[in-house]
Design a protein around this nucleic acid. Structure first.
Length: 702
DNA sequence: AAGTGAGATTTTTTT
DNA sequence: AATCTCACTT
């Protein structure tokens, strides 16, 4: 039986196939199990054909895992089920239907850095000073408009701020350029699909008919556009199964709207609500801590996780001196775990911001702890990989000017700013793409000198040649040809710098990726590009060691579980982050994140903070995170680093204080354990009373 | 057009 | 501390 081993709520969720269902699934409550079995159940009961079932996840990794688990249950017909992310699903649809909304099916996808580049270009075109107006806030604003399904035309009148007025203007031009270049950004993938379905009745009817059963994971993190899309899809059959947990809503900052989840029952009439509250993952202690933290949030649906598991070990909270001390503490704990026969891959280190991985990484390297990092500066962000991808993008979509600009003079071929300006002006005047303009070197009015004209012509012909040979080659063969023809590989191969040799290795590594792609699906260049640009942070890993400790952000960890979890940087201004401190919603979202982090742990949880943390050359002192105080004492073991070896302080000693700078001790008071010093600083702070137990004084001279 | 060095700038989370 | 940007030189 498909429902074997499920608890009554889970079984009900599996068997309720008709009509809208909202499954409130607490962390570790077996929701993936429920979703996969529900799909298997639908097929077994012959409710639907595989291609009539849609399952949407948030990451490719989650999609892959779901497909594998469904495959185990029902075999090869699992291949025909639509299991993918929102974005990948939209690409699949748009490749088929794009011509209906004025795009070619070969459109390319703009990644975050290309998008910013494009916004900058638009701002320059409109004569805005990039120093006065921050391009990333403009990008941000436009993205939030798109998430709410506004177009430059439907944008409400009466903007308030100067930034909004500017962004509005940029939005107009940006959207125009995207279309001209046959490019879509991430938000467009969803937005354009919605537009397609709303304006084309037959297309809409087709997909409404097709998707008889729809499943959406992480429903609390859907935005307005995604919500709209789901409503369009589900309109005919009304068989929408949404799975979510309001306590795990951590993406409000990128447009996710929790009211999608909270309003489900009014949005879809006769919706059935099922709560999964039994946890199969963590110890009682870990769950108690998670529950104790999350009750501090006001805006939530009442829910309490419970488990039949043992109490388990207490949560260890460690107050470190600085990042290095924190890392050393973690290394010691990992080594203890390994000494007991545990594996490195059981362990994960979670942090609020990517920048925090550095100290851990450096210390792990020194201590020879194998690790891998998910997200952050990854393989695909490297210059050489972006360059190679840009070449491929230009060939797949010759109108892609952003990519063309990236590689037009890499390797150096003598096309500089002056030439570029001429080409761009020429293209603009005649309504041509940049590449097309490069094909017109014989035109006198382009006014290129003989030598430069020749170089431009050669480049143009090279691209044309590369475009011609695309057909019939696998992506791997194609990339190899491209690397040879453009002399891109040669550029690094002929260098003796160690750095350049590393770049060569990365390029070779990319060929491993293309080989895997060729073996898997033998798609076109455009397919390959779409697949790689839609990888989520968690899909990209860096470092390929087996049996390694995983380092990632708490956001990336959602949906994963590990026997041993280390949460680092539990400090005010870091976690909760300073940028979320000014609103209640902000802090509550941080608390959700804390809840997510805690509930990743199956057996053991360690949380640490630093009294001193250095960030770009400066040392900052932070209080321990407020979330630590929300974990009941009886669940924890708390310890502090030996702050400083017992030092006998004496008058006249010159010291440096992390905040106030250099000063001289003028008095020593208090007990041996808790010394209080009077220090006269040379800076404007004057004389202050300092307790060396609480800060870190550096002795300069006696 | 390309190479160099001073000066600015950086850290929130991501499809 | 490390990387990027921009003005200046060759």
């Amino acid at each position: 039986m498909i429902t074997d081993g499920l608890n009554p709520e889970q079984a009900l969720a599996v068997k309720t196939t008709e009509g809208p269902v909202l499954i409130i699934a607490g962390a570790g409550s077996g929701k993936t199990s429920v979703m996969t079995r529900r799909i298997a159940y639908l097929l077994e009961k012959k409710c639907a054909q595989p291609w009539e079932i849609l399952a949407i996840t948030f990451t490719n990794k989650a999609a892959k895992e779901m497909r594998e688990r469904v495959h185990k249950l029902i075999g090869d017909i699992a291949e025909d089920i639509w299991i993918s992310t929102f974005h990948a699903m939209c690409v699949k649809i748009l490749r088929r239907e794009a011509h209906k909304i004025g795009y070619e099916s070969q459109f390319s996808i703009l990644d975050a850095s290309d998008q910013l580049e494009m916004i900058k270009q638009c701002m320059v075109d409109l004569n805005y000073d990039l120093k006065k107006f921050d391009p990333s806030s403009v990008t941000w604003k436009i993205s939030s408009w798109k998430n709410a399904l506004y177009t430059p035309i439907t944008l409400p009148k009466g903007s308030k701020s100067q930034l909004e007025l500017l962004a509005k203007e940029v939005f107009f031009l940006y959207q125009h350029k995207l279309k001209a270049m046959q490019v879509m950004d991430f938000d467009d993938l969803i937005g354009q699909t919605v537009a397609l379905l709303e304006t084309h009745e037959e297309t809409r009817a087709f997909y409404q008919q097709k998707f008889r059963y729809i499943h959406v994971d992480e429903y609390q993190d859907t935005n307005q556009a995604q919500y709209r899309l789901l409503r369009l899809f589900a309109d005919q059959h009304q068989n929408l199964c949404a799975v979510g947990d309001s306590d795990q809503a951590i993406y409000r900052w990128r447009g996710a709207d929790i009211s999608n989840l909270l309003n489900f029952e009014t949005d879809f009439s006769h919706a059935l609500l099922i709560k999964l509250e039994q946890n199969y993952r963590s110890t009682q202690t870990i769950l108690n801590a998670a529950n104790a933290v999350i009750v501090h949030n006001q805006e939530r649906k009442e829910k309490k996780l419970w488990t039949q598991a043992d109490e388990g070990e207490p949560i260890v909270i460690y107050g470190a001196i600085d990042q290095d001390d924190e890392a050393v503490f973690i290394i010691a704990k990992i080594q203890e775990h390994a000494a007991r026969g545990g594996r490195f891959e059981d362990c994960t280190v979670l942090y609020r911001a990517n920048a925090l991985s550095r100290a851990i990484e450096e210390n792990f390297m020194q201590a020879a702890i194998p690790y891998r990092i998910l997200g952050g500066m990854t393989f695909y962000d490297r210059k050489e990989i972006k360059d190679v991808m840009a070449y491929l993008k230009v060939i797949a979509n010759p109108s892609d000017e952003i990519s063309l600009l990236r590689i037009i003079n890499t390797p150096k071929r003598g096309i500089g700013d002056g030439t570029l300006r001429k080409l761009l002006d020429y293209a603009h005047d005649r309504d041509l793409t940049l590449l097309e303009a490069m094909g017109k070197t014989d035109d006198e009015s382009l006014a290129l000198s003989g030598k430069v004209g020749e170089v431009v012509k050669q480049f143009y012909q090279m691209i044309m040649y590369l475009k011609e040979i695309e057909e019939g080659l696998t992506v791997t063969e194609y990339v190899q040809q491209m690397l040879y023809k453009t002399q891109y590989r040669e550029m690094y191969a002929s260098s003796s710098k160690e750095e350049d040799q590393a770049r060569l290795e990365n390029i070779d590594e990319l060929l491993t990726v293309t080989r895997a792609f060729d073996r898997r699906r033998r798609g076109t260049l455009a397919d390959f590009l779409a697949e790689t640009s839609l990888l989520s942070d968690i899909d990209k890993e860096y470092g390929k060691t087996e049996n390694a400790v995983t380092l990632m952000t708490m956001h990336a960890a959602k949906g994963l579980e590990f026997p041993v979890v280390f949460v680092i940087g539990a400090e005010e201004t870091l976690f909760p982050h300073a940028r979320s401190l000014d609103s209640i919603e902000g802090i509550e979202e941080e608390r959700n994140l804390c809840y997510v982090a805690i509930t990743r742990a199956k057996k053991q949880l360690f949380i640490s903070y630093c009294t001193e943390r250095s960030a770009f050359g400066q040392v900052r002192m932070n209080d321990p995170s407020r979330f630590l105080a929300e974990i009941p004492d009886h669940l924890t073991v708390r310890s502090l680093a030996d702050h400083q070896a017992v030092t006998s302080w004496s008058e006249g000693t010159k010291v440096r204080h992390p905040l106030y700078g250099v000063g001289v001790i003028t008095a020593v008071e208090g007990t041996i354990e808790d010394v209080e010093l009077a220090i006269t600083f040379t800076s404007r702070h004057g004389t202050k009373s300092i307790r060396p137990k609480l800060t870190r004084l550096k002795i300069l001279e006696n």
